[in-house]
Nucleic acid binder design. Sequence first.
DNA 1: TAGATTGTTAATCGATTAACAATC
DNA 2: TAGATTGTTAATCGATTAACAATC
Lengths: 205, 205
Amino acid sequence: MKAEKIPDIIVGRLPIYLRALQRMADNGLKTTSSQELGEHVGISAAQIRKDISQFGDFGKQGTGYSIAYLLDKLREILKVDRIWEVALIGAGDMGHALARYQGFTNRGFHIVMVFDNDKEKVGEKINGFIIEDTEKMVERLKSAGIKMAMLTVPAQAAQGVTDKLVQAGVKAILNYAPINLNVPPSVKVQYIDPSTHLQRMTYYL
Amino acid sequence: MKAEKIPDIIVGRLPIYLRALQRMADNGLKTTSSQELGEHVGISAAQIRKDISQFGDFGKQGTGYSIAYLLDKLREILKVDRIWEVALIGAGDMGHALARYQGFTNRGFHIVMVFDNDKEKVGEKINGFIIEDTEKMVERLKSAGIKMAMLTVPAQAAQGVTDKLVQAGVKAILNYAPINLNVPPSVKVQYIDPSTHLQRMTYYL
DNA sequence: TAGATTGTTAATCGATTAACAATC
DNA sequence: TAGATTGTTAATCGATTAACAATC
């Protein structure tokens, strides 16, 4: 185990391992090997061992990894051994789909607030949440100490909302708007843009 | 310009450049430089010049790049100088949101079919499309010659549907199900899993 | 014990950056 | 012309793979 700074590219693979291990556990498996896990996620066994060994000696020679133990450790490393409260900004179609999405449960996340700047929508209920006015967002996020947000507003509104999120102390943004966001280095952004993802594949067609 | 094989990591950045340039064009800008584009997308000027120069000499010393010309070239390279017909499999919340999504227009994609295996949903209309039965999917995709699909079915159904897509000749899959898909090397997959994306950020919180 | 598989080292491979001649 | 910026080369940096001693 090394205590040095872990490259971003390795951190990025851990959730993939976590997801595959979770699935193995759900299927009743008890142990796995770097070889087997690698086949599941399409990554070489050597790389998986190297990645995991950055954080500790979690395996056993001859038998591999205890799935339950490795799951625990990965959740701990990724800090998803707890539930993170997430704000959802933008109550359009995509916002609605995320508000109803079941896939956050057991993965460490829970939507607790929904905002929209459309006065017509404010006050409406969506999956049990009352849509709140974006004008009150900074105050609400600050007082609730929320660190994560999902952004499903139109592209032209995204940077403005982002500035407010940063101001409110949000440190991680999952951005569905098809635009690059400008944030200070202390704030992380992940991008989900279906068109961009599709365009990564058309080159090969 | 080199005619050699282009690394996947470079191809993956082109849609980001394309999106930023599109935005500049929308804002009425005519030319840009690797420096300026780099500031927009958070990539070094040197890398942008190197990436672009893999495909040709599209810039001019002293003045930079014509935005319109570079847009044309990037669209051509990425093969989004045409409209790709895309099938949507899974008419749940996420499927509905994608069926209504406006962001595919002008980016090279058009949803033309929607499938679901729920007999209750089959026949229903969603954004003008009639939801079709997954049983008829392979035949329908084959005869329409569709090469791209978006998958928004539950995780436990995803691999089965994927096998049928591959059988139908689909070569690019945008997978929203939180599971790794097994496909032949000739088929490309891109993954969108909000929980995985969020978990890439919690490590830094 | 024999077989399997880890963690780690060294070698290889690939990607990024810095620098600058060419030239618009 | 002078200033700006490209395309490209060489240097640096980082990531992946192969191999194997350690050991369960």
